[in-house]
Design a protein around this nucleic acid. Sequence first.
DNA 1: ATGCTGACTATGT
DNA 2: TACATAGCCAGCA
Length: 112
Amino acid sequence: MNPMSTYQRIYAVVRKIPRGRVTTYGTVARLAGLQGQARLVGYALSALPTGTAVPWHRVINARGEVSLRTSATGAGITQRIRLEQERITFDSAGRVPLARFGWKTAERPARV
DNA sequence: ATGCTGACTATGT
DNA sequence: TACATAGCCAGCA
């Protein structure tokens, strides 16, 4: 039952992430039927051809931070900028509050 | 076919 | 809270 390659399934899940939301590699893996293989998601996204219609920037690690190793040069910065353009904010530690912007995360009684 | 590489995560200290 | 370690798999040379 794999009409699509593993990478294709991962991309299909990522395309479902709504604008203004983020999710983790682990979550994408689970939704793609690859539970426990978060790393594959990361590898799949790194292999993503530029210009592809996949919101890869909405996928961050479980700590809520951008996980690109190239964060110092380009892609990492691009990812953060794209997220901020979707009204996603970063805290002083450079992390996204998953409890607030995480996809499919129930909004809790915002103890603001 | 074998070995290397790489956008992660859970767990223990 | 931060750092180190082990487990996981697909793609490519």
